[in-house]
Design a binder for these strands. Structure first.
Lengths: 215, 215, 215, 215
DNA sequence: GATGAATGAGCCTTCATTCAT
DNA sequence: GATGAATGAAGGCTCATTCAT
C-alpha cells in the first residue's frame, strides 16, 4: 500500500498476491493459537480469542481451519519432532560426549520452552487417539534412533555391558523430555550435570575418559 | 434399628447410619470422578456426568462438593504423595538394591496406573497455581528425601564421586514419575532393568556388587 | 423420655402439648418468613433459609405450608388490614383532628415499618391475581370507610363543598399508604405536617378552627 | 448499498446498514424486556423469554446486554425521569391551574401505563442500591422543582400560609406517582377531581378563583 | 411428626460454528 | 474471501419440593 520509492503509483495497490496473503493469515492464526494455547491451555482458549489476536474476524478462522482442534493439530503435527530431543549425533563419540550432549540438551530445552506447547500437548494426548498415535510414533522413532546410536557404541565396546540398552534409550528420552519440569522461574536446568548423568548411563567412566581424550 | 449389642436382629434392615451413607455417597462421587476424569480428562467431564455415574442427581453432587474443581482437588490433594514414588527405604543398601528398587517401582507404577489421574494432574497444573504449588512442594520434599538417602550413601563412600547428587536425585524422581509413559497397552515396564539403570546412577558397579554380597 | 403420667421426672422439661408445639413451630416459620422476606425480598429468600432461621428442618416447612407462596399469603392475608391505615375514628371531629390524625399516621407508619412486608407485598401483587384481589378488596373497604367518615362530616357541613369526596378519600388513602416512602434513613416523616395537609383536604380552615376549639 | 442522495436506486435491497440493524435488534430486545417485565415481573422473566419474544436466539441477548439486570437498567435509567410526573409548568398560574394540572396528570399517567414498568421498578428498588440511589435522586430533583414552584407562588401570596411547603410538594409528588394504582380495569382516574384536590393543597379557594379569572 | 438428603427442572451464561451480507 | 452477528446446544449451578428414614 505504501509507496516505498517516492514515485506515487496511481491507484495501484502493490498488495501481495492472494495466495501469499492467505498464507500470511494462516500463519498469523497459527502463531496466535500457539501463543494463546500455551498461555491459557487448549480448553481455555476460544476460537474468537485466536481470531482476534490474529486480527481477523471469527469467521475467517474457519476458512483456514475446520475447527479449533485442527489448528492445534496443525501446530503440533507439523513440528511434533521438535518436541523431541534431537537425534543424538554420532559425533558425540568423537568429541567430549558430555559437552556435546549438554549443548544439545540446552538447545532442545530452550526450543521447547519457546514453543510452549508442552503442556497443551499433554492436555490433549489422552483425548485424541489420532494425536496420541502420531506422538507415540514420533517418540518410538526417536527412541529407535537413540537406541541405534547406543547399539553402535556397544559394538565398539563403549557401553556398559550389563544394562538393557532399550531401557537406557527410554531413560535418556525421558530425562530429556522432562527437562522443562526441571526449569524453575529463576534458574535454568544444570544441563552439564544432566549430561554427565546421561553419559554415565551409557559409558563406563574409563571409556568416557578415553573418549574425552580423543577430542 | 441398628443392632448395638452384637446380636443380629432378625428382619432388621442393615441400613447404614446416616453419616455412613453420606460418606459412601461422597466416596462414590469421588470414585466416579476419578474414573471419568482419568478416562476423559478434566474439561471433558461434567458434574452431571459424575453424578450420573455415581447414580445420584446433579444437585447431589453439589451437596458434597462445591464444584468440579473441588472434587478433583479432594481426589488429588489427599493423595498427592501417592503420585510420588515412595520414599526409598534405607534398607536398600542392606539388601540387593536392584531388587528392592524394582519392587518399589512396580508397586508405585501400579498404584499410579490404578489411580489413573496422572494425566489429569498435568492437565490442571498449568492452570491451577494452588495445585501447582502443593504439587511442587510434595515433589520438592520427595526430592529432598531421595537426596538425603544419596548423601548418606555418599558418606559411606557408596556413590559415584563425580556426579551432582542433586541432579541424580532429580533424575531418579523423573524416571519414576515417568513410568506410566513407558507403559504400553500390552506390556508393563521392565521394572528390573529400570532399577538397574537407577542403581547405576548411584552406585559404581563394584560397590553394587559388594552390596549385593551383603544381602 | 417423656413422663406421660403426670409425675414430674427430675430434669424433665414439661414440654408443650403437641398442638401447642406445632402452633409454635408454625409461628416461628411465619416470623422467620416475615423477617427474611422483608429483608431480602420474596424471590431472594429460599424455603431452606426460612426453615433454618426457624430452627426446623427443610421438610418441616412443607408440613406447615404447602409452598413458599402460601407462607407469604398467610403472612399477608392474616394481616392485610394492617397494611392499611386504621379506620379513621369519628372522634376525630370531636377533638383536634390534626393531632388525632398525626398520631394515627405515626402508629400506622411504625407498624408498617415493623412489619416490613410493604415491598414484598408490592413485589407479589402483579403476579398473584388472588392476592391482588384480596388486596383490592381490603383497600376498597378501607376507602369505603374513609369515605363514610367524610360523608358524615359533609352532612354536618364540615367539608369543602367543591371536592369529590371519593377522590379525597383516595387521596387520603394514598398519602397514608406512601408514608414509608417518605421515610429516610435518618429521620421519620413529619407526621404532623402531613396531618395538616390531609385535614386541609377535608376541612375548610374556619371549620377546622372551630373543631379545634371544641376540643 | 444505501442511497445517500435521496434518489431511490432501482434494484437496491433496502436493507438497513449494519449499525441500524443492530440498533433495531437492541430495540426489539428492550421492547420485549419491557413487555415481559411489566407483564410477569422481573424475577419471573428469563433472558430466554426475552430473546424468544424478540425472535432472536438466547445468545444474541448476551451480545447486547451483559445480563438481565442490565437490560432492565437500560430500560429504566434512560427514562427514569419519565416515571416522574413532568415538572409543573409555571404557566399553571397564568391559566386555570386545575385544567392545566389535570391535563398533565392524564398525560403522565398514560405514559406510565404505557411504559408498564411501574411495578418492576418497585420490585427492584429494595434490592438494587444503585438503582435506588438513581431513583432517589431523580425523585429528589423533581421534588425540588415542585417545591420551587410552590415557593414562587408563596412569594406572590398565592399559597396557604399554614402548610409546610416541603410536605405539600411531597404530597403532590406522591399523589401523581400513585395515579396508576387508582386506575381500575374499566375506568381511568378522574384526573380533574385529583387536580382540584392538588390545587386545594396549594391555593386557597379565593386565590384559585382569582387565578381562574385571569385566564 | 420431624428430618435433611436427594431430586431434577430450569436458569444463566459461554462458545464453537454457521451464514447473510 | 472476509466479516462478525446470530445461533443454540451444553455446562455450571440453584432451589422448590419430595421422600426414605
Amino acid at each position: 500500500m505504501i509507496d516505498r520509492d517516492g514515485q506515487p503509483l496511481i491507484g495501484e495497490f502493490p498488495s501481495l498476491p492472494k495466495q501469499e496473503r492467505a498464507y500470511q493469515k494462516r500463519e498469523a492464526l497459527l502463531e496466535s493459537g500457539r501463543k494463546l494455547f500455551s498461555e491459557k491451555g487448549y480448553e481455555q482458549t476460544t476460537a474468537k480469542d485466536i481470531a482476534a489476536h490474529a486480527n481477523v474476524a471469527t469467521g475467517t478462522f474457519y476458512r483456514y481451519f475446520c475447527d479449533k482442534r485442527q489448528l492445534l493439530m496443525a501446530l503440533i503435527k507439523d513440528q511434533l519432532d521438535r518436541f523431541m530431543p534431537p537425534n543424538p549425533n554420532p559425533s558425540w563419540m568423537n568429541h567430549d560426549p558430555e559437552i556435546g550432549l549438554a549443548s544439545m540438551l540446552k538447545k532442545h530445552d530452550q526450543r521447547l520452552d519457546k514453543l510452549g506447547l508442552h503442556h497443551v500437548l499433554h492436555e490433549l494426548l489422552p483425548h485424541d487417539p489420532e494425536l496420541a498415535q502420531v506422538y507415540a510414533e514420533v517418540r518410538k522413532k526417536l527412541h529407535g534412533s537413540i537406541y541405534e546410536g547406543l547399539l553402535q557404541a556397544q559394538k565398539l565396546g563403549y557401553t556398559w555391558d550389563d544394562l538393557d540398552l532399550t531401557e537406557v534409550a527410554w531413560s535418556i528420552l525421558t530425562l530429556t523430555e522432562k527437562l522443562p519440569d526441571r526449569r524453575t522461574d529463576q534458574s535454568e536446568p544444570n544441563y552439564h550435570a544432566i549430561a554427565k548423568i546421561i553419559c554415565r548411563l551409557v559409558f563406563p567412566p574409563d571409556i568416557l575418559k578415553q573418549l574425552k581424550g580423543n577430542s
